[in-house]
Computed example of a mutant assay.
Amino acid sequence: METGSPQGAQTTGTEPDWTGLPPGLLRMRRLLLVVWLGPVTLAVGLLLGAFAGPAWSGLALLPLALMAWGWVLLGRNWRSWRYAERADDLLISRGVLWHEETVVPYGRMQLVEVRSGPVERHFGLAGVQLHTAAAATDATIPGLDPAEAERLRDRLTELGEARSAGL
């Protein structure tokens, strides 16, 4: 996991100082994968074994293979997420096959929210949702430590107010 300065990523070179997502998000997503596909695998194996014969219970390997494939894909997706705080904007990069890099200028931010649903709270995670005037540029950073999410919200709000006051 790449980590950057917790107080911001002002860089002197051309490459920004990227911050990766904490491993708690990956653990949560993988556990949810097992919680949903584990019982499906078991049910397919038991039901097919009981009603169609023991040879058919081998089809339970399909959801098991799907779970293994999802395990790998979740890891790749988690590693692709990162963000960087620069002097005038926030960069968010994500995606494996379709790579997206979102640039949100601080002066364009209208609202910065910290969100955490019941599953995220259980795993000690929170996300930051950025709202701008253009709905197409709204951005999210998922799976942060709640303290980091609040720090980022406060910093982005402060920078947004300072930049918009200068307009």
Score class of each variant (00 low, 15 high):
17 D>I: 13
3 T>N: 11
67 M>H: 03
164 S>C: 00
147 A>D: 13
39 P>L: 04
51 F>E: 07
1 M>W: 11
112 V>N: 10
69 W>Q: 11
66 L>P: 03
122 H>G: 11
39 P>R: 04
149 A>V: 01
165 A>S: 14
15 E>W: 07
24 G>S: 12
142 P>C: 08
95 G>W: 01
108 R>F: 04
134 A>P: 08
117 G>R: 03
133 A>R: 11
108 R>P: 04
23 P>Q: 05
151 R>V: 04
65 A>V: 10
124 G>E: 10
131 H>T: 15
9 A>T: 14
117 G>Y: 00
62 L>F: 15
45 G>M: 13
67 M>A: 15
41 T>S: 06
71 W>S: 07
138 D>I: 09
90 L>D: 02
89 D>Q: 12
80 S>H: 00
42 L>D: 01
122 H>T: 14
50 A>V: 13
70 G>H: 06
58 G>Y: 10
100 E>K: 14
38 G>N: 00
161 E>A: 06
147 A>H: 06
73 L>E: 09
3 T>K: 11
77 N>I: 05
101 E>Q: 15
88 D>E: 15
71 W>E: 14
25 L>R: 05
87 A>N: 13
56 W>G: 02
27 R>K: 13
162 A>R: 10
144 L>C: 12
115 R>H: 12
94 R>T: 09
145 D>R: 07
9 A>C: 08
77 N>E: 13
40 V>I: 15
42 L>P: 04
90 L>Y: 06
34 V>M: 05
105 P>V: 12
137 T>G: 01
144 L>S: 05
113 E>I: 00
28 M>V: 02
156 L>R: 03
11 T>W: 09
99 H>V: 12
142 P>N: 12
35 V>Y: 08
55 A>D: 07
28 M>D: 08
143 G>E: 02
89 D>G: 09
29 R>F: 07
64 L>W: 08
70 G>I: 06
72 V>H: 08
64 L>S: 07
70 G>R: 02
37 L>E: 08
91 L>I: 15
117 G>H: 01
74 L>P: 02
156 L>A: 02
82 R>T: 09
109 M>P: 05
64 L>D: 08
27 R>H: 12
113 E>R: 12
146 P>Q: 10
77 N>L: 02
40 V>Y: 05
37 L>T: 09
113 E>V: 00
51 F>R: 04
161 E>L: 14
110 Q>K: 03
70 G>L: 02
85 E>W: 04
22 P>W: 03
80 S>E: 00
105 P>H: 05
137 T>V: 11
81 W>R: 00
10 Q>P: 12
159 L>T: 08
37 L>W: 06
119 V>R: 00
6 P>S: 10
5 S>C: 04
83 Y>N: 04
32 L>E: 10
28 M>T: 01
84 A>F: 04
117 G>N: 02
83 Y>C: 02
42 L>K: 00
74 L>A: 09
